[in-house]
């Protein structure tokens, strides 16, 4: 350590002499000029340190302790409403979910897809008021289109369509307006190899939660028509009401 290095170290430790290295302290002992310089520097630093004490704002300590707890309170304030909201969604959704274990798999999958579209959880692929255009879009998507439809099902105003998967194969949802403001969703499935199908050309009606459904088969296609409109409106399409 040379004199300049010792001076830098001593200058950095005037207020905490215990931090100075033994080497630097030894140089002070052996160098009177360095010792005098250190004494003057130390006196100045002590004077500055004394003048340094800025006043501490009243209540700062209490405020720090209080604020450290505040985020916890905020969390607590939000946790309960959020949990309640989440629970409400779960309970509400459970009450609305129409799919049951007693349904054949193809029907359960179809109804689940329809329910998601109805509640906006799943977006439609195409929107059109033209049934022919909807069918072309489905063909382009390599999704099944109905060969024929019973009663007045095919005369309802069409709204949109979507490609889905049922039993691992391409299927279609075609959305109609069954009544003003109410929709009916027709699922078209290629039924080859699918078990528990409804009989040919004989619609079966079923109600689950607030959904009314009709399902039937026609050749290699099976259909599910599901709506939240009342049962009479649904049956009317088949000339039964």
């Amino acid at each position: 350590m040379n004199r300049e290095e010792a001076r830098l170290e001593l200058d950095a430790t005037t207020l905490r002499p215990q931090d100075a290295s033994p080497e630097a302290r030894a140089m002070v002992e052996s160098d009177p000029e360095l010792g005098a310089w250190l004494k003057q520097r130390t006196a100045f630093d002590e004077q500055v340190a004394e003048a340094f004490a800025a006043s501490i704002p009243t209540g700062l300590r209490e405020s720090i302790l209080q604020n450290a707890r505040q985020p916890a309170k905020r969390s607590f304030r939000w946790v309960l409403p959020m949990l309640a909201a989440a629970a409400a969604v779960v309970v509400g959704w459970t009450m609305l979910w129409p799919v049951t274990n007693s349904m054949p798999a193809w029907q359960a999958e179809s109804l689940a897809a329809v329910t998601k579209v109805e509640y906006g959880m799943s977006k439609v692929d195409h929107v059109s008021r033209d049934f022919e255009a909807i069918k072309k879009m489905l063909v382009a998507d390599q999704s099944p289109t109905p060969v024929r439809l019973p009663g007045t099902v095919g005369t309802m105003p069409v709204l949109a369509c979507k490609r889905i998967q049922v039993a691992g194969r391409a299927a279609s949802i075609i959305c109609f307006e069954i009544e003003p403001g109410k929709e009916a969703h027709l699922v078209v499935v290629d039924n080859t190899g699918i078990p528990n199908l409804p009989p040919q050309l004989q619609p079966q009606f079923k109600t689950s939660k607030n959904w009314n459904m009709a399902s039937w088969s026609d050749g290699s296609q099976t259909f599910l028509l599901a709506t939240r409109a009342d049962e009479a409106a649904l049956k009317k399409l088949f000339g039964l009401a």
Binding site: D11, F44, F52
Partner: peptide, 30 residues
């Protein structure tokens, strides 16, 4: 430094600069 809370080594660590830099900055600042 004047707060006397930290050694010059700790000041270097706090400011993220080498110890030598802290010592020379202290000397110049004084």
């Amino acid at each position: 430094f004047y707060l006397k809370e930290l050694s010059y080594r700790d000041i270097a660590e706090t400011l993220g600069v080498p110890i030598g830099t802290v010592m020379s900055r202290l000397s110049r600042a004084k």
